[in-house]
Structures are given as structure tokens and as C-alpha cells.
Amino acid sequence: MSVTRIQPRRRFSFFEWKEIVEYRDLLYFLSLRDIQVRYKQTSLGVVWVILQPLVPAIIFAVLFGNFARLPSNGQPYLLMVFTGLIPWSLFSNTIGRAGGSLVGNSNLLSKIYFPRLIIPLAAMGSVVVDGLVGLMVLVVLLALFGVGLGWHMLAAPFFLLAAFLMGLGLTLVVASLNVYHRDFGYAVPFALQAWNYLTPIVYSSSLIPERWLFLYSLNPTVGLIEGFRWSILGGVPITTTMFLSMLTGLVGSLLIGMAVFQRIERGFADIV
């Protein structure tokens, strides 16, 4: 017979992963709910998921590649933009959609106990599905442009996972702070927009002048995007600075996210 002890918690404790595993069916149904709600009342359904990254990618490719003739390291500009958009949407859509998830589900959180982490995780489910559809589109594009396979492609899952985890860490911060200050709901899209410009998504980092490159590479998402791009298209691997700042950003955001989330989690039902 299981014994549950209820006591005030004091110190930082790690998530009870065991419990999350126990509730994995809930995670499944909640994600399913989010995914279905997203597409249930649309008649085009999955077409939107394909169009969302593809249309902007084509526009940027024409504008920057054909008209402005920005460098693309010898790759088709469309492919360069598209390989940037996949990890970036994974990262930014996670924050965008799951960031408000705690506030959005406050009716559940204040009435039923379950591992709180399930809520942001479930909200990320639809982002992952979108990402998978994006990957399939990428495969089609790669075939159309005749890009060959290479060993570097084995690194792609690693960069996608990094994008997911970095997004998770920041999501936890944003979702938690949203509970206290709804200002974050407004600040986050704005911040993501700015971050977007500082990340080589629609352009290549080879555009950055040499003396600014180090500073530029400190942005953790630079390594994320250029890393994924390299793993798909090959070419020059990312610099050590880019890689290290990506790893630092990844671990840092996860740790901060967990700490903030736990702190908020305790008092959550008393606030909302």
C-alpha cells in the first residue's frame, strides 16, 4: 500500500520523474486534446502546419536570396531558411504556446492534483507534432533539390533535442512567471521577435563581420540553428564558441526553469 506523506517542502528537490511516468497516460490525453483542439475546427487541418514554415521560407528565399543576393554558403537559399526555421519554431513555438499553459489551465491546477509539469509538457506536444510535419516537408525539399545523404545527418536529432530542451527550460520560466505577472504574456512575443533577428534563421551567420562574430556566437540559439543546418546540409561545422554557448544555454535554462517552476508550483493553487 502506498503511503503519501504531505509536509511543507523546504529545499530544492528534483522533479519526481517517477510520478510523471505514472501519469504518462494523462500526458498523452492532454497533448491529444491540445492537438485536436488546434485542428478540429479547421478544414485544412494539417495543411496549415505545412504552410506555416513553407510560405515564409519561400518569401525570404526570394527576397534575400534572389533580390538581395545574401550569401547562403553555396546552398539553395530556400533550404537554408527552411533548415533554420525547423529548430527555431520548435524552440519559439514551445515558449509561445506552453508559456501560458499554467495560467490557461488554472481551473485544473486549483482542483485536481497531478504532477504540474504535465501541463507545460502536454502543451509542447502540439509543437512536436508540428515539428515532425516540418521535418517531413524538409525531406521532400531535400529530395527535390537533390541533396545527398551524409554522416553529419546523424547529428540532427541531437540539435532538435537541444532546441526542445532549451525551449522547455525557458517555457518553465515563462509559464511560472506568467502566474505572477501577466505582463509576460505581452513581453514574450516581443522578446522572441527580437531574438529571432539575432539568430541566423533567414540569413546565414557568415553574414556577420569577423570582429562581431564572437559576441554574436554567445547567443545560444546561434549554435542551435547553425548546428542543425550543418547536420542537414553539411559544409562548415559550427565554431567551438557557438557549441559551448549552446550547451551553456541549454543546461542553464533547464536548471533555472526547474528552480523557478518548483518555487512557483508550491504556491500555485494559492495564487490563481
Binding site: 503511503v3 503519501t4 506523506r5 504531505i6 509536509q7 511543507p8 491546477l109 492534483y113 508550491r266
Partner: peptide, 28 residues
């Protein structure tokens, strides 16, 4: 507190067995 929605400030509670709580029907 007993259904673990909120944390106590002092003291403790021990529950032996699986808990189902029905604080409001139809939530979710």
C-alpha cells in the same frame, strides 16, 4: 491539502493508500 493541491505550512499528514479526490465534478 489532503488532495495535494496546496501545501501545508506546518505539520504533516500521512495517507495510506491511493487517494481519489472529487473536489468538483466535471473539472477538466
Amino acid at each position: 491539502i489532503l488532495s495535494r493541491i496546496t501545501e501545508p505550512s506546518t505539520g504533516m499528514a500521512e495517507i495510506r493508500g491511493r487517494v481519489g479526490s472529487l473536489l468538483e465534478v466535471g473539472t477538466g
